[in-house]
Computed example of a mutant assay.
Amino acid sequence: MIASFADPGQRTAPAPFGHALARLAEQDARIVGLSADLAKYTDMHVFRDAHPQRFFQMGMAEQTMLGAAAGMAEVGLVPFASTYSVFATRRAYDFLCLDIAEPNLNVNVVGALPGLTTGYGPSHQATEDLAILRGCPNLTIVDPCDAVDIEQAVPQLAAAPGPTYLRLLRGNVPSVLDEYDYRFQLGKAAELRTGRDVVLISTGLMTMRALQAAQRLEADSVDVAVLHVPTVKPLDREAVLAAARTDRLVVTLENHTVVGGLAESVASTLAFAGVGTRVVPIALPDEFLAAGALPTLHDRYGLSTDAIVQRVRAELGGTPRPTRPGAAQPTVPPTA
């Protein structure tokens, strides 16, 4: 059973990554797929069944899989190598860094179960994968919101000249962004909603929650903008600066530890540009998380829509608002 973060009755698409990769392979003979004994659980089985001669089952050997993908890229193929995010980052980082990123090869690493998308506990919860990989040169990092993002991202990842890392949402994945006239552009953020009072800068599945929270807050006459950041590295700094250079409350949302992910990337962007805007991080705490049911865990760790709405209301009610664009704000410890 694949746990889903989709809401009851929400519109979903089955295995969007696998179907997008299989379609792309029909047009591009260079596309190959690899799996570390997890094809079914990374949606790579869709590609395997459609193109069995171009699929390589590497067994439970993630280092070998990434090394083989590097060799395939050296001879002109375009590999997509899939496993769980914890194994691609914690277990095989050296191979990703030196075999793939250092020679700047077109290898696309696909990591399932990013952040808090499983209740299996710390052995499978990749809550720190962005922190690990943001420091790797040449690597492009994509954290999609939904099935629309994934389907549109796959061809662009294949076309990118260097290595990429995709935080995969698997199984029945919600479809949300097609309601917002959205198109995925590698390296670009997208403003999905405008708003005068609050701007939510979000990535990954948290953009879905940001949109839900914005609709809920409308009932309180709170006008909320949502800036979706599907590419975490390289960050669309111009879009982030434009969003933060106002008198709005700035909140970041990510399915990742508060250490080393979107919040710190946004905060450093503002600091380096001399913008003194306070950033409120909604993220996972800097700790190993519990096992359990996803809805319960998302409530417990502040990723649910209810938790986001409560946090924004508290910030608006208890935090002095700036009186001019770029006004400095008191600093607070980075808690989830």
Results as ranks from 00 to 15, higher is better:
102 E>A: 11
205 L>S: 00
235 L>T: 00
206 M>W: 10
313 R>I: 01
88 A>I: 05
130 L>V: 07
224 V>F: 01
155 P>L: 07
262 L>P: 08
255 N>V: 15
123 S>F: 11
74 E>M: 15
192 L>E: 03
285 P>Y: 13
277 T>F: 05
312 V>K: 00
145 C>H: 05
15 A>R: 14
227 L>G: 02
58 M>G: 01
275 V>M: 10
242 A>V: 14
308 I>V: 10
186 L>G: 01
311 R>T: 15
47 F>A: 08
65 M>E: 03
128 E>Y: 11
202 S>Q: 06
183 R>Y: 03
72 M>K: 05
331 T>H: 13
226 V>M: 04
61 A>G: 06
230 P>M: 06
158 A>P: 03
57 Q>R: 12
253 L>H: 04
139 L>F: 14
157 L>Y: 07
281 P>R: 06
170 R>E: 07
289 L>Y: 08
157 L>C: 00
287 E>N: 11
264 E>Y: 05
258 V>K: 00
236 D>I: 10
60 M>W: 07
291 A>N: 04
128 E>L: 11
247 D>Y: 00
92 A>E: 09
79 P>Q: 13
26 E>K: 10
6 A>Y: 07
93 Y>W: 15
307 A>Y: 08
57 Q>D: 13
165 Y>A: 07
276 G>F: 13
253 L>A: 01
27 Q>P: 09
139 L>Q: 14
249 L>W: 13
259 V>L: 09
113 L>Q: 05
58 M>T: 03
288 F>G: 00
185 Q>D: 09
137 P>G: 08
217 L>Q: 02
232 V>T: 06
41 Y>S: 08
119 G>P: 10
34 L>Q: 00
19 H>M: 02
54 R>D: 12
37 D>W: 12
308 I>R: 00
142 V>M: 08
45 H>N: 12
160 A>W: 15
118 T>W: 08
26 E>F: 00
36 A>F: 14
59 G>D: 07
47 F>Y: 12
79 P>R: 08
126 A>T: 15
50 A>I: 08
320 P>H: 06
86 V>E: 04
197 D>L: 03
175 S>L: 12
50 A>N: 10
209 R>I: 06
172 N>F: 12
158 A>F: 07
282 I>L: 15
60 M>I: 11
255 N>F: 13
